[in-house]
Nucleic acid binder design. Structure first.
Lengths: 192, 192
DNA sequence: GAGCTTATTTGACAAATATCAAAGGAAATT
DNA sequence: AATTTCCTTTGATATTTGTCAAATAAGCTC
């Protein structure tokens, strides 16, 4: 939980009362690799703070597994569309490693939003940060070649490349795994 | 201004005091087609509500003009990245038609966020809505062919196709204008 | 409405990436 | 250690889309 409040402090400084109220709604999860946090066609009720581990948000498009987002430690994971709109959507979330998470239920945080101005501010800033990150991810793919996409990821999130299977990274980048494998082969050749 | 508060009411119901405070910071703009609302490498200080008209957010990538976002009436336009991070970024915003806008200055709304809980909530909900829309746009392009991208736009925003030049739509979809022109030719042929 | 500018279409060709198929490797399980 | 399963690489080929160049078409301005 310490990690969570450390991350939170990067967004906003809460009053002790708000902090206590927020810590009271955090639910701990300790779950194994492969666990499905969210199943497609259900409504996402939790946003998860990742203390330890790694999650992947994915869906099926024309029968093919497409990775939508990868969340690392000290960030959040959820189906943004479902959590905000309160409707089911196509996304699944799975754990790529054994993980320790803190879940925030939609209804619980809604109540705190109503009651505590500073928690509402926290919410606004978290969503704003998410919006900036998604825009940057979008920019990284817009009119970029397969190699450019991979290099950008290597720049911004090198640990993802160590921890996530190639096929998932490929679909995260909007390319096939064969193409990504060939790009990687080029890379190592260059380094020799 | 009526339009603005009508749109606002879809997000949240403000107290009369908050509404008055918010209306006091709205700045009216009436500007001609072609006007540059935001210039690249500057910080975006305004978010604009579009009462009438149409804006395009764009930047240059490898010397080529890339359309990032198109905003229609009753929606907002700004460089999300720059407005939130308070840093310059690469995006320009131009008017594609003579327009009537209401600008909200970053500093002004920040003050209101501090003072009025319900305006902070409004901010959170606007950003949340923006996040959902960006995610949906992202989904529309992820692993979609050129024709699929165009058809999706035709479904969700047909008016854009009437009002925005083909080259700009093409780059918005992440394809070349020649490819889009050929897709359109296929389309009309099918209808005959 | 002639002339200029800008936007769109079309064609020929090149490049990038996907697809299909198969072979290697690595890791987990018994 | 052997077996199974999953992950990655490689090769051959097909498809899609981009690039370059030129021809039309549509809008604006004087």
């Amino acid at each position: 939980m310490t990690d969570f409040f450390q991350t939170l402090n990067q967004f906003v400084r809460l009053t002790p009362e708000s902090e206590a109220a927020l810590s009271a709604i955090l639910k701990p999860f300790s779950l194994p690799r492969g666990y499905l946090l969210l199943k497609e066609d259900t409504t996402c009720n939790y946003i998860y703070y990742i203390e330890k581990g790694l999650t992947r948000t994915f869906y099926y498009k024309d029968g093919k597994d497409v990775t939508d987002w990868i969340s690392l430690e000290k960030t959040f994971a959820c189906s943004v569309v479902s959590y905000i709109t309160r409707r089911p959507d196509i996304r699944n979330i799975e754990l790529l490693e054994d993980s320790v998470l803190w879940g925030i239920h939609y209804n619980d945080i809604e109540q705190l939003y109503q009651k505590y101005h500073d928690i509402e501010r926290f919410g606004r800033l978290v969503v704003s940060d998410g919006l900036v990150k998604l825009q940057q991810r979008f920019d990284d793919l817009h009119f970029a070649t397969a190699a450019e996409r991979y290099n950008k990821l290597l720049d911004t999130n090198p640990s993802v490349i160590q921890r996530v299977p190639l096929g998932m990274i490929a679909s995260f980048l909007g390319i096939t795994q064969e193409t990504l494998s060939r790009i990687r082969a080029q890379h190592t050749r260059r380094k020799e």
